[in-house]
Design a protein around this nucleic acid. Structure first.
Lengths: 205, 205
DNA sequence: ATTATCTATAGATCTATAGATAATGC
DNA sequence: ATTATCTATAGATCTATAGATAATGC
């Protein structure tokens, strides 16, 4: 159900935001539509006026996350021609996106954990844009001879995934190790490590 | 409830194994005790004869995972004196443990995603041994001047977390990118990258 | 007139308990 | 005698639907 009036559009957006936060925090199975409704300040059935089912709502959240991340990344890498710079720009885009939207990071982190996606038949239905983005940057780099012929998915697992850990782990390591992933100094330290690892991973020879 | 007879101990162990697999695949909130019972071949209430509650069962699963991983890692690093070798031995232990027990990898992956652990008050109640293991190896390396003074948790997020991605992501990237994390050639490629990244991350200067 | 939201409820869960029955080992 | 497992069920959910009511814009 696509809202027609501005008020309806606002409600729909509020539902999406609340749902993203709750799905991120406790996962799809544990999330309750009542929690979402309460966070928005409406009654539960009103959610189903905009989204046909709980699964539908989740899909809308995941679709929005990957569409937003893709758009954000495209803007960051457009015009960057040097292959290594392009790769670092893509990693920086993913890092900045997830630091600014930690609920997205948690949802992607859960997506990786889900085995055989019990909820949907196609695990890359929404994440394909991110996979294609990094594959394209990699293909360029290898073709130009700037990168060694490393599998993009090996790089994804070995280097890019750390962005999600950096964001998600901030409060999971105990009180003495807690950090703020958005703190500029902290973020700069992680970014420096991320760049160092990325350069090392792709360096030819 | 601790079983007394051998048959009871077998049942308890079967419940733990089935529960680990199901919690790993779909998460705590979505998991149903009925699924666990069905996988074991018993009735649902029999589970609660051994574990006081669903939460209790989950805690037993998580505790066993981290205790096993800790024991496995300790055996691998004992006797290794060179700091870098110790660090690589710890990473290899984690890698081999999670490749052999992918359900453990998925559960840890979910643990990282859980915000503020809605299920328990202390997020490191069971994972502390892993955190202490890597901190100890790091402290040795820095003291010996073999490592630059990098935060162990930065290393954990930047390098060690990739082990979970490697294991969990194998079936999440679409049919054309699927791989078997236990395949020797595939595993060797990832291990080589993991070692390269670890060396680079800690190298002084 | 149409869109948005609500109340009430059907129908299907799910965890946990109570208490009976079956299996086991002394 | 004790341990292990089962049946039956209480009590509390949860999603989704039906249909009434309130709010909005033409």
């Amino acid at each position: 159900m696509r809202p027609v009036h501005a008020r309806g559009e606002e409600t729909r957006q509020s539902i999406l935001e609340a749902a993203e936060s709750i799905f991120a925090d406790i996962g799809y199975g544990a999330a309750r539509l009542d929690q979402v409704a309460q966070a928005v300040g409406i009654r539960r059935p009103s959610i189903l006026y905009y989204f046909a089912s709980k699964q539908d709502l989740y899909d809308a959240v995941e679709a929005d996350i990957f569409a937003s991340m893709h758009a954000f990344a495209q803007e960051r890498i457009q015009g960057v021609t040097d292959p290594l710079d392009r790769l670092l720009a893509l990693l920086d885009a993913w890092l900045d996106f997830n630091v600014a939207r930690p609920s997205a990071a948690r949802i992607i982190q859960r997506l990786v954990a889900d085995a055989a996606t019990p909820r949907r038949n196609n695990p890359t239905e929404f994440s394909f844009s991110a996979l294609e983005d990094i594959e394209a940057v990699f293909a360029d780099g290898v073709r130009a001879g700037a990168f060694r012929p490393l599998s993009p998915m090996l790089f994804l697992n070995g280097v890019a995934g750390s962005v999600l850990f950096y964001v998600c782990n901030s409060g999971q390591l105990g009180d003495t190790r807690r950090y703020d992933p958005a703190d500029p100094a902290e973020l700069a330290r992680f970014r420096a490590l991320l760049h160092l690892l990325a350069r090392t991973a792709v360096r030819p020879g």
